[in-house]
């Protein structure tokens, strides 16, 4: 399998009038095609900064990134525009990128139909449930046909029950569209339920403590939760997290 993105000895320091904060120190990993990788670590350790560096919202101080990826980005909150209906939200990236062609709009509508939102095209985000909004948000990123999806704590704004449904939902869509994903989370069971690999980060400045491979990658999130080794993995991740 070929590598989509490769981070090589990345370090990042933030400067402010109060001094400097070293947030990332010497982090290297790569993501392959069709792979879901989770980054887990204590809160405020700089997990999101890694996503920001990959998506070039921020620049690393040291190290290099080799990327063949076309990126999509999914946020903690749905980040939908409340004054646009579902369809207009989904085609919004096409408008910004100035590629609102007939073919692309057709593709957007296909995606909406494929993922069960066809009867909600004219609905506004405020009429939708939290889980539904996240689905629209995901479809909006798919419109640009990414091959690597960056997810920044995408389920943390949802209540416990909805979270499970949406995780299942997002997992299915990601697998179906055959895109790789990098998920930042602080939820251990979420990381195990969704990913092929879990990268455990230390406290700030974060570096990689351990990478754990998940053995049952062919199972869905709900099946994984029922698997006998789930608790075992949970404990292994937990024991490597320092708080």
């Amino acid at each position: 399998m070929s590598e989509l993105v490769k981070l090589n000895r990345i370090s990042k320091t933030f400067y402010s009038m109060n001094g400097e904060t070293n947030v990332i120190s010497n982090v290297s990993f790569s993501i392959d095609e069709n792979e879901i990788v989770s980054i887990i670590g204590p809160s405020g350790c700089g997990k999101s900064t890694i996503l920001n560096i990959i998506s070039s919202l921020e620049e690393q101080n040291e190290g290099e990134i080799i990327s063949n990826a076309k990126l999509g980005y999914m946020f903690q909150k749905d980040a939908l525009l409340p004054w646009r209906n579902v369809l207009d939200n989904v085609i919004f990236p096409l408008e910004i990128k100035k590629i609102k062609t007939k073919d692309n709009i057709k593709y957007a509508i296909e995606l909406i139909d494929k993922y069960g939102l066809s009867s909600f095209k004219k609905h506004y985000p405020n009429d939708l449930s939290g889980g539904m909004k996240q689905r629209v948000s995901l479809i909006r990123t798919l419109v640009l046909r990414p091959n690597l999806l960056l997810l920044d704590e995408p389920f943390s704004a949802l209540d416990a029950q909805t979270k499970l449904f949406v995780q299942e939902d997002v997992f299915k869509i990601i697998k179906n569209e055959k895109i790789s994903s990098l998920i930042v989370t602080h939820d251990i069971s979420e990381a195990i339920a969704l990913s092929n690999r879990i990268i455990i980060l230390s406290k700030r400045p974060c570096s990689i403590v351990k990478i754990i491979n998940i053995p049952f990658v062919n199972l869905s999130p709900s099946e994984r939760r029922k698997h006998k080794d789930f608790t075992l993995l949970f404990n292994e991740v937990f024991s490597n997290l320092d708080e």
Binding site: F75, A79, I96, K97
Partner: peptide, 13 residues
């Protein structure tokens, strides 16, 4: 909303 602004930045707007 900061989320919306970040969304726009990611799209390179």
């Amino acid at each position: 909303d900061k989320n919306l602004i970040k969304m726009m930045k990611v799209l390179n707007a």
